Simulated scan of single mutants.
Amino acid sequence: MGKSSRFLVGLGSADLADIQKQGITPDIYDQYLVGVGAGSWPTWNSPSGAYVQVVAQNADKLGAIPMFTLYQMASNGDGNLSGLTNTTFMKNYWDNVRLMFQQIKAYGKPALVNFEPDFWGYTQRISNNADPATVSAQVSNNPDCSNQPNSVAGLSQCLMQMARAIAPNAYIGFPPALFGDLHSTAMSYMLKLGADKADFIVMQTLDRDGGCFETVPQVSYCTRAGTGWYWDESNLTSPNFKEHFALAKTYYQGLQLPVLWWQTPLGVPSTQIGGSSGKYRDNKVRYFLTHASEMVAVGGLGAVFSTGEVNQTSINTDGGQFKTYSTSYLAKPAALP
């Protein structure tokens, strides 16, 4: 991809001007492609689909590889799978995918694509014995994939088939959902999707700062049940970083692909539980960027940091933390094998 053979560090969901203002030099620049039909990402610029070029050009200005997180399956609501068998929805879905890859081909340089975060977990929950071939989806009416079955298994194969045929310069990856109730069958499900035929694995930590879930009373944008959102950096009590890296290693070994962490929260470490809007605590930036060699050891290729929700810590509210740790890391980076 034109980068040095070291663990890569990226940023997402941040404005170009904000990154440039701090003199941050990310290896990867990630943005979402969302929506199906009216108001979806192809309509954001003219001509249709030009947003891909906007992101790619911004990445070029940063010296970064553009990354596109395709997040169209959540258009009807997170976890709503009704669109899979809706003719209009799926026609628009495939038209957008085709346009995305055509635009990436026109860009002409390496680009990364992250396929549908969380969607695969939702389909796994309704599948029969963790088999994506048992979940219906309209696929064969897409002229690019008339050879594929009308199922979620066919859908995943179609995404890869379109990538290889239309945009050979695209590197593609699937994100295991990491839902706690699916751990026992997640690996077999990813293999049945054919995720081992992609180029990398998209690994997630949490789409919010840990402290956001610790607030009392809970805020509307962080209402999940549970505890242990803030990981133990000493790795003595659970949950901790070594446990997470061990999980990442199982995917690395099972799919035989490098691991790219994505949407890693930007919160600042604190002994004060919780926090406030824009300043919730977390410690993943500090740990990841001071222990990158541990991530390389479990198959790590890089980590992309970004906010998963507008009230979370960003590079504008972190007091310069990301700039400080990323600069320090780049002065003594972790080599890839």
Rank of each mutant, 00 (worst) to 15 (best):
A17S: 14
L155R: 10
N92M: 12
Q22Y: 12
T88N: 06
Q161G: 07
T317M: 11
N235W: 03
G274W: 01
D131I: 10
G154T: 04
L206M: 11
V219W: 11
Q256A: 12
Y189D: 03
D95W: 09
K109A: 07
M73Q: 03
Q256I: 08
C145H: 00
T264S: 07
Q256T: 11
N169P: 00
L62Y: 06
D30Q: 15
G267F: 03
K109T: 11
S4I: 10
I104W: 03
Y251N: 02
I201D: 00
N141S: 13
Y29I: 04
G37R: 06
P110G: 02
K192T: 03
S314W: 07
S75H: 12
N141T: 14
P217K: 07
N92L: 13
V259Y: 01
F288E: 13
P117N: 06
N128M: 10
G319Q: 04
I104K: 12
T327D: 03
D131P: 02
T43S: 12
I24W: 05
G302H: 01
F7N: 01
M67K: 15
G210W: 06
M162A: 05
R208Y: 14
N92A: 12
G300W: 05
W44R: 14
M187N: 02
S220V: 12
W262L: 13
Y280C: 03
S326I: 04
Y93H: 00
Q204E: 10
Y71S: 10
Y32L: 13
A225Y: 06
P258V: 13
Y71T: 09
